[in-house]
Amino acid sequence: MKKVMITGALGQIGSELAERLRRDLGVDNVIATDIRKPENNPTVENGHFEILDVQDYDKFLEIAKTNKVDTIIHLAALLSATAEQRPAFAWNLNMGGLMNALEVAREVGEGTKFFAPSSIAAYGPDAQPDNTPQDTVMHPTTMYGVTKVSGEMLENYYHDKYGVDTRSVRFPGLISYKVEPGGGTTDYAVDIYYEALKNKSYKSFIDKGTYMDMMYMDDAIDAIVKLMNADPSRLVHRNAFNITAMAFEPEQIAASIKRRIPDFEMGYDVDPVRQGIANSWPNAIDATDAKTEWDFSPNYDLDKMTDEMLVRLSKKFAEEGVETKVSFDTVES
């Protein structure tokens, strides 16, 4: 990667990835894009930013060619719960946007590097729920999952047919303090830290006993960078690798928080839509192939992530003047 274009750069992944790549590659070598341009946003203010609707192919191609990018990281998509509410729009955005992105990569030139994330949502309820293998039956029952498994096949097609250097991962739930959650089924695992600090209580919209794979955002960003820099001759699967750092149920993340906030309390107000989505996903996936083919290795487990989230969010709330019932200045050793 020398010059990178990111779509959906204001989202949870994009905002942190843009910051990382600007450090790694230089500010002028990262073109961040999104459908809106908010004021006082660091992704907008701290580097090259352009407005782009990924369904506008001509504008997409113009930005890529004008800036002579060699890598496209396509993150613009509608997430799981929101996609279930607007399935036709989700298909048009997720698949139409991906098709445009791949066509732009093809037009930019053979060998262009391309990344668009898949998800554990691609599996569906027929897959082996525990230690779910890389290669197995995939019958998703959500529109989000349908677009993700379709996207994996489309990316493989563009690699085999046109020589686009496509690479992808199946992300688990991603947890970050920097950008608030945006409509995902796993977002309870972000919300819970916000509410723990603000109110010392939380009502989970995911029911007790529901295991899902999760990952701290720092590990997710590292995974993208490491995969995109990996020796292509080692890559067997390409689209897409299972990756995960941990799998837990709501009770376990609550217990991790209670280590630091002993009087934290959690109840349940289960959302049937998101619970149904969660029930269709694996409990824990097998990331062996990612470890073997490009040395994937996460750094954060549940307790280390909890400590980091509470400290980082405490500082963020203090800077924003948000009132909390508890705060932390340092991570306990």
Rank of each mutant, 00 (worst) to 15 (best):
T186Y: 13
T186Q: 10
V190A: 10
M217G: 02
A254M: 13
D187F: 05
D231R: 02
D271W: 08
A254G: 10
M215W: 04
K200H: 00
D231Q: 03
M215T: 05
Y194C: 05
K226M: 01
D271N: 15
T185C: 04
D191N: 12
E249A: 15
F248D: 06
M212R: 04
Q275I: 04
N283V: 15
S256H: 13
F205Q: 05
P262A: 06
D271S: 11
K200S: 05
R238N: 03
D263A: 03
A220F: 01
F241T: 08
G209I: 06
A278L: 14
G267S: 12
Y194H: 15
A254S: 15
T185F: 04
A230W: 01
D213S: 13
N242Q: 15
E195M: 11
V273A: 10
R259N: 15
M217D: 03
I261N: 09
T244A: 15
V190Y: 00
Y193Q: 02
A240M: 08
G209P: 02
V273K: 10
L197V: 04
M228K: 01
R260S: 10
R238H: 07
A196T: 00
S280L: 02
I192H: 09
R238I: 13
S256D: 13
S204V: 00
A196Q: 01
A255M: 02
E251P: 09
L235C: 08
G267P: 08
Y188A: 10
R238E: 07
P250I: 07
S256Y: 13
G209L: 06
D269Y: 04
A247E: 09
I206A: 03
E251D: 14
F264H: 06
M214Q: 14
N239Q: 12
I192D: 09
E195Y: 12
Y211E: 03
A240V: 14
A196H: 01
M246N: 11
A245C: 09
M246P: 03
Y268T: 00
I221M: 04
K200Y: 00
V270I: 12
A196G: 02
G276T: 11
K203G: 03
Y188W: 08
M214D: 08
V225R: 01
Q252D: 06
Y268Q: 07
S201M: 09
Y268P: 11
M217Q: 09
G267K: 01
D218I: 08
N242W: 12
H237K: 14
P262W: 08
P232Q: 11
V225M: 01
V270W: 06
A223G: 05
E265H: 11
S256F: 14
Y202E: 02
D187K: 05
I253N: 12
M217I: 15
T244L: 13
K226W: 00
N242H: 14
M246H: 08
F264D: 07
H237M: 10
T186G: 07
F248L: 15
D271F: 07
A247W: 10
M212C: 05
K198P: 05
I261E: 08
V273W: 03
V273S: 05
I206F: 04
V190S: 11
D218F: 06
Y188S: 07
Q252C: 02
V190D: 10
Y216I: 03
D207E: 15
Y188V: 07
N239K: 07
N279K: 14
